[in-house]
């Protein structure tokens, strides 16, 4: 990348950075702080911009690291989320027995998929975010997460399979 401008090339990344940070921290306020810290860091290293191949991948990598730091400090783990999920699972199915409204059913499905996505391990979550929401190629994702392409595919495969199985299970037994 040749000429990088903060206003035209860096600041417009804010929403992508925010979504990735949100996927990791699962907390809007923390995610916003993470984006702020990321942009400051990117700005402070502006001498390096000309040598960077993709300022977006660069910013996303920084953002992920900052978000991981924040999530780690807050002491959130997947265990806690799993417990939360199992209880809400029960509530969902009970609720749906009482109101077999189709629209309501779809709302519950969406709520469940959201929860499922949040309970995936962080790497799978981040990869799914970058692929299915940001539309990144496997190579780009590998670059951002400092993995190789086949690792990215393996993680994504696990994530998608997990979501699929849960979705089918809920359909058969849950709803």
């Amino acid at each position: 990348m040749k000429k990088v401008s903060f206003r035209d090339d860096v600041l417009p990344l804010k929403n992508r950075l925010y979504r990735l940070a949100l996927r990791i921290t699962l907390n809007p306020a923390e995610a916003e702080d993470a984006v702020q810290d990321t942009l400051i860091k990117v700005w402070e290293r502006r001498e390096e911009w000309e040598r960077i191949e993709s300022i977006e991948a660069y910013a996303l990598t920084i953002c992920r690291n900052i978000s991981l730091d924040m999530a780690g400090k807050a002491g959130r783990g997947n265990v806690q989320l799993n417990e939360e999920l199992s209880t809400s699972n029960v509530q969902c199915s009970m609720f749906n027995v009482q109101t077999p409204d189709e629209n309501q059913e779809q709302k519950e499905r969406i709520a469940l998929v959201r929860k499922l996505m949040d309970t995936l391990p962080e790497v799978q979550r981040s990869i799914m975010e970058l692929r299915d929401i940001e539309g990144k190629t496997y190579q780009e994702i590998a670059n951002i997460l400092r993995l190789n392409e086949s690792q990215v595919k393996v993680y994504l495969h696990r994530a998608r399979t997990g979501i699929r199985q849960q979705a089918e299970k809920i359909e058969k037994y849950g709803l």
């Binding site: 925010y18 499905r109 996505m117 929401i133 699929r164 979705a167």
Partner: peptide
């Protein structure tokens, strides 16, 4: 195909999550 609709609905929904203009000003 209904069980899978939610998966893609959530993807579209999540793609719209964004930061407001005030963020730029603050930045």
């Amino acid at each position: 195909l209904m069980p899978y609709k939610a998966v893609f609905d959530v993807q579209r929904e999540k793609a719209e999550v964004s930061l407001g203009e005030e963020f730029d000003t603050r930045m």
